[in-house]
Design a binder for these strands. Structure first.
Lengths: 242, 242
DNA sequence: GTCAAAAGGTTCATGAACAGACCATTGACG
DNA sequence: CGTCAATGGTCTGTTCATGAACCTTTTGAC
């Protein structure tokens, strides 16, 4: 038999994950994240409940509970009748105004490490895809939107959207999910970075480098650019929080 | 407001994931995967039910249902009383003997892409950690175990264990989970690769390159080596199934 | 103006999952 | 040789989640 005197017990501990929370919390979390990350923008409608429930693989009752929670938190409002529905009223808070969120040191480090792996990976993959004209325009527009964001709050959101766009163009569902999770985990902390003109402009330049490399199909360059970008953010965050 | 005429609707579709399957299936899947990947070796005991249930974040009843399923599949046997418990009886099937598994083309490509991102990422991170003597020995031993595996079946398993070990040493729970998922997704297909002496030896050399780089703290080299390794496997698989 | 379609709101019966108490078995140890 | 602690096995009441049917409100189309 294969002996493994040293690592015995190490793997089970590492591999067995504490599985799923309950449906309600999961759903609230997911929708709230999507809204905060700008997947659904201000003023936009969520899909009808029946449809959304199906997409989330969750019963309509549970979804409704979740939406009720969002409503209570002021993220959305709901109107009945034809043309009604649930629409997003959330406006991102001004970055820097937020209290430095509870510092879960280990979780933060994990999220930063994870992000530094999956986002550059997504950029690399995206650059290797054969992108359609639409997709190219979307990517460019997403980057431009970050530059054009009128205020820090919408900047934050546009930035998330850009990163998710890159992930989406990688074409790998597993990677998309990973990037989403990383963004969600970092979201509140990124929101705490004070927004200096210099940082923003630098960050946008890095976005452009990523976009350029992806459009040229230069995968290695795309990855390197995204790594640089992640490292920069990471440094800011670590410096800020600890 | 930020206009996004192009990507409208793209992100919601990409980001909203079809959430959790039921607890029973999830648990069976997770345990079966852990066993097949060699997280629990042949003849070894699973933790006591109460403990395992807690670690999996699942009620004991559900866990027991899952274990019953494993028992039915012949992966484990159970004995009561002090010193009893559930022990692993699974022996990996001889690779190549398996029917080329159902080819879910898209899922396969996704898993390969994903793996090619997260495994090198894990190697990179592991190389940057300040590893203890124990951890170093474990890594070396894991790689050696792959070389020393007496037959193709245990080779397959030792290989999984090695990759999970690297992930574990990255120290990032999110990455560990990702690597586990990638390995699980590819597990059955990797089992279908005919095992040629040349491939094995080549693969082990690549493992050694990874180990060496990690031990030296040469993150870039570690990543590059792991990429090469993933690409090689990937090529074999695509050739075989695609 | 009317009406039908498209939304959200309500209710209820059924099954899944959980927590916890308790039972049964068995081997380790005194 | 006996005992008791560690382990799996069983039962039960409660809570969560689902699915499906049905109700209410609103508005755009005719």
């Amino acid at each position: 038999m294969t002996e493994s005197p040293l690592g015995a017990g190490r793997l089970p501990e590492a591999v067995l994950r504490p599985a799923t929370a309950n449906v309600f919390e999961t759903t609230v979390e997911q929708l709230a994240t999507a809204i905060r990350l700008g997947v659904f923008e201000h003023g936009q409608h969520l899909p009808p409940e029946r449809e959304l429930a199906e997409r989330l693989g969750v019963s309509r009752s549970s979804l409704r509970d979740a939406i009720a929670a969002l409503r209570t938190s002021g993220l959305v409002t709901t109107r009945r009748g034809r043309g009604g529905g649930t629409l997003v009223t959330y406006v991102a808070p001004v970055p820097g105004s937020a209290r430095p969120p509870v510092r879960r040191g280990v979780a933060l480090a994990d999220a930063l490490d994870f992000r530094r792996v999956v986002e550059p990976g997504a950029a690399w993959l995206a650059a290797r895809q054969d992108l359609s004209g639409d997709q190219r325009s979307w990517l460019v527009a997403s980057a431009a939107a970050v530059r054009d964001a009128p205020d820090p709050a919408s900047h934050r959101m546009a930035d998330s959207r850009f990163h998710l766009a890159v992930a989406t163009l990688s074409g790998s569902p597993m990677l998309i999910e990973s990037v989403t999770r990383a963004q969600a985990a970092l979201g509140e902390m990124l929101g705490a970075i004070p927004v200096l003109e210099r940082n923003i402009s630098h960050s946008c330049d890095q976005h452009d480098a990523v976009v350029g490399a992806i459009l040229r199909g230069d995968a290695d360059r795309a990855r390197a650019a995204m790594e640089e970008h992640c490292d920069a953010t990471s440094a800011l965050l670590r410096g800020l929080l600890g």
